[in-house]
């Protein structure tokens, strides 16, 4: 009974239990059937490991901070605006930008799976896909934010966006004080991935 810890009603139980061996077995099978090209897998991995990531979203946020016209257009139709920057694509077909203010702090989750704006932020981090985050952030966002070291003022309400359709959300964090007059390039390093999900704030200037 080599696979007796898996559910036997499902074909996946036929694969080896060790995940690294599972993927290897699937890859070998699909390659032998002519259904995948292993070199194409390398290209996909390289794309998401090195080319598409939070640097894209940070570019959008920095420009929104530095350019009021851009910010207005982004809040009006983010899909069109980020497309012009080349940030359209898989898991980012319908983008909405939501802006943090003194009155409201936005946080993004996908309670049902792991929806995330790939072209802007890349592949989601492990915690975003974790049961604890998915289960808890809708019910007790402030307790979850505290686990990220973030405490919000009592006067600021929280709005949690549960990504239950194909709309993907980008949080525009509040621009840190002391950055008046800074240009886009200077602002860029202050923008963290977590600040664009809402579990972090932008960095204060050093």
């Amino acid at each position: 009974m080599p696979h007796d810890h898996h559910d036997h009603d499902h074909p996946h139980a036929l694969l080896p239990p060790d995940p690294a061996l599972r993927v290897k077995a699937l890859e070998s099978l699909l390659t032998a059937k002519g259904l995948i090209d292993p070199a194409a897998l390398d290209v996909i991995i390289d794309t998401y490991a090195h080319k598409i990531g939070p640097q894209n979203g940070a570019r959008v946020v920095a420009r929104a901070w530095a350019d009021p016209g851009f910010r207005e257009a982004l809040l009006e139709d983010a899909t069109a605006v980020v497309s012009k920057l080349g940030f359209y694509g898989r898991q980012g077909e319908h983008i909405v930008a939501v802006e943090n203010t003194d009155d409201v702090h936005n946080v993004v989750v996908c309670t049902l799976c792991s929806c995330y704006p790939w072209p802007l932020l890349g592949i989601p981090p492990g915690w975003y896909k974790s049961d604890a985050y998915r289960a808890r952030v809708v019910r007790e966002p402030r307790a979850v934010l505290a686990e990220f070291g973030v405490t919000l003022p009592e006067g600021q309400s929280v709005r949690v966006w549960d990504s239950t359709a194909e709309v993907r959300y980008l949080v525009i964090p509040q621009r840190p004080e002391g950055t008046e007059g800074w240009d886009e390039e200077a602002l860029l390093p202050l923008i963290t991935r977590d600040s664009m999900i809402g579990t972090g704030l932008a960095k204060a200037p050093a």
Binding site: P19, A20, V23, K24, L26, E27, L30, L35, I36, D37, A40, L41, D42, I44, I45, Y48, A49, G53, R90, G122, I123, P125, G126, W127, S130, D131, A132, Y133, A135, R136, V137, V144, E147, F148, T192, R193, D194, T199, G200
Partner: peptide, 29 residues
């Protein structure tokens, strides 16, 4: 569920090499 445990923001995108293979083979299929 227990606490959320955030990884460092500069953690690897695929912290084990089979994670990337799993994602890529799924997209390719």
């Amino acid at each position: 569920d227990g606490p959320v445990v955030p990884e460092p923001q500069d953690a690897l995108v695929f912290d084990e090499s089979w994670h990337g293979r799993a994602l890529a083979v799924t997209l390719a299929c």
